[in-house]
Nucleic acid binder design. Sequence first.
DNA 1: GGAGTAACTTACTACGGGGTCAGTAATCGT
DNA 2: ACGATTACTGACCCCGTAGTAAGTTACTCC
Lengths: 222, 222
Amino acid sequence: MSESTHANTPRWRRLPGERPRQILDAALEVFGERGLAAARLEDIARSAGVSKGTIYLYFPNKEALFCEMIREIPSRHIAVVESMIPENATAREQLREYLRNSWDYVRTPSFEILYRLILSELHHFPDLYEQFIEEVPMRSMRILAAIVSRGIDSGEFRDIDPIAAGRMLHSLLFVHGVWAAKRARIPFMRDLSDNQVLDQLVDFCLHAIGQAPAPSASHVHT
Amino acid sequence: MSESTHANTPRWRRLPGERPRQILDAALEVFGERGLAAARLEDIARSAGVSKGTIYLYFPNKEALFCEMIREIPSRHIAVVESMIPENATAREQLREYLRNSWDYVRTPSFEILYRLILSELHHFPDLYEQFIEEVPMRSMRILAAIVSRGIDSGEFRDIDPIAAGRMLHSLLFVHGVWAAKRARIPFMRDLSDNQVLDQLVDFCLHAIGQAPAPSASHVHT
DNA sequence: GGAGTAACTTACTACGGGGTCAGTAATCGT
DNA sequence: ACGATTACTGACCCCGTAGTAAGTTACTCC
C-alpha cells in the first residue's frame, strides 16, 4: 500500500516538447535573481520541476542556456508593439499609441529582469550583443524616428533630427520601465499610477518635438 | 649579484595608507569586467599590486569590498556637479550648465561601470540600495526640479510638474551616459561627437519644458 | 504484456576560487 | 645594529557547483 511502483501516479512525466520553455522560464527567474555567475543550475532545475541532468539534455551548458533565454524573449514583444501602430492616423496619434503600447510592454515583469541582465552580462557575448542592439533598441528607435519624420513633413512636429528624437523617446521609455518595476522602493514614483506616469511621458515628449515657436531661445546670447 | 636579500630594492613596500584606494580602484576594474560573483579576488589583488591576503587586511570579505567601492565613488562626483551651478543666472542657463556638467561626469569611464554594477547587483544589498537612490538619482532629480520650478516662476518654462520634468531630464542624461561609453559599438551614436549629443539633449529638454503655446494639441479630438 | 527506446534522475568527479594563517620581509625605535 | 612591531605574502583548506555518465523510469509499439 505504501509503495507505488506501478501505481497510477508516476514520479515524473516525459514532456520533451515542453521542457525547453519550462527551463527557459525557470532560467529567467533564477538568472534574474542572482545573475549569470551566481545562479545555480540546480535552482533552475528545481524551479522548472526537473533535475539538473535534464537541463543538459536540452542545452549544452550554462552559458548557452543564458544566451538562448536572452535571444528568445524580447524580439517577440517588440514585433507585437510594432504591429499595433494605427496605419491611418496623425503622427501625433501614432506616437501616442506607440508610447502607450511600449509602456505596457516595458512594465511587464520580465522586461526589467531581462534588460538588467542584458546590460550587465551581454558584453561577454559580442555577437549576441550586436544582434540585440540591432533587433531591439535600434528597431524601436527607427520606428519612432519614422513617426517623427512623418510628423515633421505633415507640420505636426518641429524641425528636429528624427533619429535624435527617436533616441530620446526610447531612452525615456526604457528608464521609466526599469523604474516602474521597482516603483515601491523608489520614492519619486511611489505616489503615481502607471497611467499618470505614461501621461507625463507623452506630455513631455509631445512638447519636446511638437511644433512650437520656442521664441526667446535662439537670440539669448549668440 | 643575483640575490637581493638586503639590496636597495625591496620586493614590496609597506603602504598602509594607500592600500585601500589601490584595492578599491582595482576592484572597480575587475568587478566592472566580470561582475560581483565572477570576479576573482586574486585578479583584484594582482591589479592592485598586492597579494590576495592583503585585501583581507583592509576588507572583511568580497561583498564588503564591493559595497565599499559602490558607496565611496558616486556621491563625490554628484557634489562636484552640484557645486558648479551658477547662482545668478536664468533658469535656462542654470539648466544648460547643469546638463553640461552632468554630461561630463556621465561620460567618465567609471560612470558606466558603476551604474551597470549598481543596476545589476545592488538589489542584494537593500540598505545600500536605498542610500544610493537617495544620494544620487533623487538628489539629481531634486536639483533639476528646483531649477525647473524657478524657471516656471520666472516665466521661462511652461507649467509642468517640476518633479516629473526632473525625472525626465535625469533619465535622458543617465541613458545617454551609459551609451556614450560603448558608443563605438552602437550604430546610432557612432557618427556624433560628445558635444553634438549634448546639444541634442539640451535642445530636446529645453523644448520639452520651454514656454510655448503648443496650440493644436488640446482640441484635436477631445 | 513485455521488449525496446527515449526521457529523466541520481550519484559522482573535478576544480576553481573564497577565506585563513603561519611565516617572512620591511620599517621603526632606541 | 638589532630586537620589536607591523605590513604583507603564499601555500593551504574546503566548500559549492558545473558538468558527466551510469542507472532508472515512463512510454511506445508490436
